[in-house]
Amino acid sequence: IGWGRAIREVIQAGLPRIPGVLTVAATGGMQQQAPHFQINEFVRLAAEEFGGTPHFIHAPYLPSSELREVFLGDATIRDSVALWDRTEVAIVGIGLPHAINPPEASAATLSEQALFHAAGDVIRHYFDAEGNLIPWEGESRMIAMSPAQLRAVSLVIGVAASPEKATAIIGAVRARLINALVTDTKTAQAVLEALLPR
């Protein structure tokens, strides 16, 4: 499970019973107080809805390189992260680049020149409108599912609802970071219009 407003809304709307399912965070946590960044709480609530078992990652998603190795050396964190390679279904938000959405947090600053061309991100893996991944300075330090791990998951559901996210949604699909979409009618229409030949 990823983070974001849309993920929070999906969990609050209710999830089906899937007794015994293992639910794990797709990334470490963020030092943000907003409710839509509380990923371990999302995992707890989702597991409660499913009737499954939560697996938390009590580590920041963007530690220093040295601390990353320490966190990943912890048996509890290592066991949770190992579940990423066994994931059968993921649900993730589709974010806008910081230049468009500055209050959203801080994986990179606006001084990150490479990200000026980003159409969006999925758990802070940035991509352009054509689906090309855009590396950034902090990416190698992240405690998060990798693009390769996401692409290996049978069903990765992207959740996004805002016509402004049409290009980000298209980029996420082209990058193969999602292969299913939950959205609303206005956003779906914006996606279709963005795909029309010019």
Rank of each mutant, 00 (worst) to 15 (best):
I1M: 15
Q12W: 15
S65D: 08
L62A: 06
A160S: 05
T53Y: 09
V159F: 05
E139C: 09
I18F: 12
A107G: 14
L83T: 10
H58C: 06
A168V: 09
Q189G: 04
D74L: 12
I170E: 08
L115E: 07
F37A: 05
N101I: 13
E66G: 05
A90V: 05
E130Y: 08
A180V: 02
I123S: 02
A118K: 11
I123N: 01
A114C: 01
I170C: 03
P197L: 09
T109I: 03
A180W: 06
H98G: 09
L133S: 04
I11P: 11
E69S: 15
A82N: 13
A13R: 14
A6N: 12
L45S: 14
R124N: 07
L115S: 04
W3A: 08
K165G: 00
V191R: 01
L15I: 07
R151E: 03
A152N: 15
L72A: 01
Q113Y: 12
Q12F: 14
A160V: 02
G20L: 11
V122A: 06
L15Y: 11
V70Q: 15
T27I: 12
T187S: 12
E193L: 09
V182Q: 06
R5A: 15
R151D: 02
A99D: 10
G14V: 03
G171I: 07
K186A: 15
A114W: 00
A175N: 09
I169W: 11
P19A: 14
G51F: 08
P97Q: 12
D74Y: 02
